[in-house]
Design a protein around this nucleic acid. Sequence first.
DNA 1: TGTCTACCTTGATCTTGATCAAGGTTTGGT
DNA 2: ACCAAACCTTGATCAAGATCAAGGTAGACA
Lengths: 249, 249
Amino acid sequence: MPHHVPKIDANMRCGDCPIRKRAICAYCEEPELLQLDDIKSYKTYQAGETIVWAGEEMPLIGSVVSGVATLSRSLADGRRQMVGLLLPSDFIGRPGRKVAPYDVVAANEVMVCHFRVAKFNTLIDSTPALERRLLEMTMDELDSAREWMLLLGRKTAREKIASMLVLFARRGSEAEDKPIKDGLRFDVPLTREEMADYLGLTIETVSRQVSALKKSGVIIVEDARHIRVPDYVRLLNEASDDSDGGFIA
Amino acid sequence: MPHHVPKIDANMRCGDCPIRKRAICAYCEEPELLQLDDIKSYKTYQAGETIVWAGEEMPLIGSVVSGVATLSRSLADGRRQMVGLLLPSDFIGRPGRKVAPYDVVAANEVMVCHFRVAKFNTLIDSTPALERRLLEMTMDELDSAREWMLLLGRKTAREKIASMLVLFARRGSEAEDKPIKDGLRFDVPLTREEMADYLGLTIETVSRQVSALKKSGVIIVEDARHIRVPDYVRLLNEASDDSDGGFIA
DNA sequence: TGTCTACCTTGATCTTGATCAAGGTTTGGT
DNA sequence: ACCAAACCTTGATCAAGATCAAGGTAGACA
């Protein structure tokens, strides 16, 4: 069983929520916005199971509780690029929205995703508050996508790896409600292949760069899925995540 | 004066709109959604002029009429990646939304952008219809960003160039309300440097790949800003834009 | 009309990350 | 406990694209 999967109980109610910080939390935050159905609407997907095919409509709307869902797009010859990554507490699904052509959402990991699914029809002509919340979340997602584009277009392999690890560290600490500090330990929720798809690299390069960061002492690799960071600022520097805030004359 | 800049007349009214197809068109579509101010609210930016700095709020909301606006993000050492490209008819600005840290929106070209600016305060607590429209547009933008990510992460330099040219061809034909056909001619609204920033390449590679496509007979380069396409399908193939619609087992 | 500057092209060489290849490790099923 | 399959690592070589370098072109302006 992977990284601190919160125990889900079919009788849980808001307030018992295992994740808190982000998006709409199906457990504790703004439940009235989602007009939550009864508890039956939790859903779980197995690792590798497809949640929805390209061009179809999302079968659900809610928050990821544990595990990971990914969204990928690929070329005719099989080259694949991950274009979305949903970690615990992330919101998934948009009411009345079809998945864009050739997008694929796949469940990944011991994908223990649980959702409270609302009735779609009530959502589509739903409250202004929900509309606004969805807009807010979608704009946040767009911002993340743009950060990701910077990574894909301009970062070196080593920087890409470091940036990804920073993301995992951040989200991991958030989930556990701990501050990010030196010596932190976190899970790597993706396989090497998925990391490669995430970063626009090959698995060999991913493996090599992780090893290189290890050899430099930036990270301690306990095993392929667990990493410890002795000096968080050093990892941050490796990511070159910092930008110049500049402007164009 | 560049590519067919529509003539803007300070007394124009909806129905005289020079752009039609996409987003909210400030001229003819859904003007009531934007609660348009009077005609004074058109705005023009010079080439290279900055529309808004990182962390600030968009000074306007409306549609690009002509010219190009770009959104870029960069690393501390100056490496820059374009993360947004707004062509005529694209919607610009979100009410009450600050530009993400380190994002920059810059006017580009003989940037003849005109807008009808609505009053922000009325927009922020605006109609459900506008909220929904904004959500729709933001999701479309997210879809484009994801297509762009596939390009950045997995396409070759040649494919990147071809994909970009297809985009320009499409948008150009749309603007002129002509079908895309063989022999079409279109403007390239970016400098080589901007193309490089768009594609995650260097300007030398951009230049070389354009030359290579020319030598292969896929395109006819009239000058750096004007291209003709004898066989549109061939250009499409070069872009490898086609994807497999596949799924993950 | 000439010159300056910004922009573009092409060549030579180098580097990063891809590709090809071989083993090693972990996990899950029986 | 053993085996198979999936996953990961490392090495050797290759190639796409970056970097370094040298002109060329065209529009802006005096």
